[in-house]
Design a protein around this nucleic acid. Structure first.
Lengths: 341, 341
DNA sequence: TGCTGAAGCGCAACCGTTTTCGTAAATAAA
DNA sequence: TTTATTTACGAAAACGGTTGCGCTTCAGCA
């Protein structure tokens, strides 16, 4: 779009003031080469004519866009939207713009996005990867080419760059232990991916908790649920109606599965927390108002976003070495009605 | 950032192939000036060297960024996040990138954002304005300078440009009538702004419904609530404990106020829907699971975002005259437990 | 007076792509 | 064969800012 405020360019300012383009440019950047008197003249003229430096022209020469890409699997999600808000809070202070990209948790889309943003339009990337993580060549390439990259929440373990996550093992452990402490004999863990590192860790926390409580073969209590709605609902119903192995406690490792569980319980007439106790990884502001209110592992989403953005900005602006930076923002167990009386 | 895939430029390709920069550029754009044989050579070489056109260089010359700005008051909100998803669905098909900006519903921030994006970095703007709308000079200026602009949901009435909204009057009317039909004698309407057009219309629908039911002075039942949390809670409690005028039905015109209402009822021991019936403008996917489940005016958020993006893209790509375009996506009343037995 | 150095500004190349225009060769029309 | 026309490509000027370098001017100093 043309400059809305005006179409003032350096050239126009220069002509108006009888100076050269270079002088105007330097004056506006407060260069020591320019006298105070001239600077003042330039600044007032620039203000009068609503001069705004053209983004493309300055970017072409300086190789800076003051823009970062934020890539997330989903945006209609209390965790991700809050994380984005944290990112925005941090970046807008520093004058960075945000480009948003949604992968819908599809690897192909993620790769496509990374390809199309490699035209220099962003100075760096914040990403929460999709759950299918068999290969991460597209991400490794970013590192190889020295593109600033920071993971938040869902990180690719093997890639050496900044990561901001929560204490997933611990959270999985606490959630599981809580259910056991509430008297659950058959605690299950619902996941959506075996490859996604944060889910692996939550799973490990779950396994650890069960083992410590002398529950054998905890792996048998781990279920991978499809994110596709119909399949998801079907699997859950099957699980909850299994005559031999019906769980009396469930750790839901992703917010996405909350509604299906609630609906299934309603439909199957399973009472919560009587017949089934549930804890969910979720940032839902409405957890308190659900029926029953939902016990959650509440992740510091805003903080995670903010920290990740801070890390990325440091990398971009100061060239900080963030290869081995790992910030862990602890989650919190909020016990509510779905897991105890 | 430097091009991650490589640092291949037109110049490098040209030298490698013994052609000129211009020829390469035209070949890649499938210009009729270039022979098929040459095109093929160029295309394969470009692929081999992972050539990606520099965003700044092409933008500088073509004055196109293939980017749009999306400005919203809030992102941790079921309506706005879903609308953004709709926008993304539409724009990604057409190869547009999205810049996200949050105003936190502050006019000053909105103005600031519009200023900083007027450096040519976006080809157009999608905005849902903040609730303080006394003056809209900053938006009018965009129109004056011929910047493509489309409003979605929260529009500035007086500005002549594309608007995609829901049928706010009708929705307000239906919601109010529903409560009256449920036997409510004292129906109130909670708003957060007298100037925001969509809230004015919802209010008008409310007034109309009351008048048609022979309720005098419906204006007395309209309350402006602060969005600041403490004040908000205080006002609501005051309202719900007013000995003379305690409402038995409430239309909540913005999702933001849902939680405070639920909490107030819990705290004040007001039973829903027994003592108080509630309908809320909300896109909450969890409405069904609340206790009681929440009756909502469900807005077609995804559709609104999608349509708005479509309008903007047409304006940008084809120069369509959208000054008087107004798309109305109807809302739906979903009756649940909060408003009837 | 002559010399040095700093201050203040202009000049011009440069970033990578787009696009107009020109021109040579190849083909078609006369 | 000559002339007109197409085809295929090169040359170069933009786009608007940035930046190193060079030129003047003038104060400071011996």
């Amino acid at each position: 779009m043309t400059n809305p405020q005006s179409n003032t360019t350096l050239k126009i300012l220069a002509e108006k003031l009888g100076l050269s383009k270079g002088t105007i440019s330097k004056a506006l950047k407060d260069s020591h080469e320019i006298s105070v008197a001239t600077k003042n003249k330039v600044i007032t003229a620039a203000r009068e004519l609503n001069y705004v430096p053209n983004h493309f022209a300055s970017g072409l020469k300086s190789r800076k866009s003051n823009t970062i890409a934020v890539i997330v699997p989903e945006i209609v999600d209390s965790f991700f939207s809050l994380a984005i808000k944290g990112i925005e809070a941090e970046t807008q202070k520093k004058g960075f713009h945000i480009n948003i990209y949604l992968t819908n948790d599809e690897k192909a889309k993620e790769e496509e996005i990374i390809k199309v943003i490699s035209d220099g339009r962003v100075d760096g990337i914040l990403i929460s990867i999709c759950s299918e993580t068999n290969s991460n060549d597209h991400l490794q390439k970013l590192i190889d080419y020295n593109i600033p990259l920071v993971f938040f929440d869902r990180a690719a373990e093997k890639i050496e760059t900044g990561k901001v996550v929560t204490d997933d093992f611990q959270a999985g452990y606490i959630a599981s232990n809580h259910l056991i402490a509430q008297g659950c004999k058959k605690v299950c863990f619902l996941s959506i991916s075996e490859s996604l590192s944060i889910l692996q860790k939550r799973t490990e926390g779950f396994v650890q908790a069960l083992l410590e409580n002398n529950i054998k073969n905890p792996e048998r209590n781990i279920f991978q649920i499809s994110t596709e709605k119909a399949k998801c609902v079907k699997t859950i119903k099957l699980l909850l109606t299994d005559p031999e192995n019906r769980p009396d406690g469930i750790v839901i490792s992703v917010e996405l599965l909350t509604i299906p569980i609630y609906n299934a319980c309603k439909e199957l007439n399973i009472s919560m927390p009587g017949d089934l106790k549930v804890v969910c990884f979720s940032n839902l502001p409405y957890a308190d108002l659900l029926s029953p209110s939902l016990s959650t592992i509440t992740q510091p989403a805003f903080e995670i976003g903010k920290q990740a953005a801070g890390l990325l900005c440091n990398r971009i602006e100061k060239g900080t070495d963030i290869r081995f930076e790992k910030i862990i923002c602890p989650s919190r167990l909020d016990i509510r009605g779905s897991s105890h009386h």
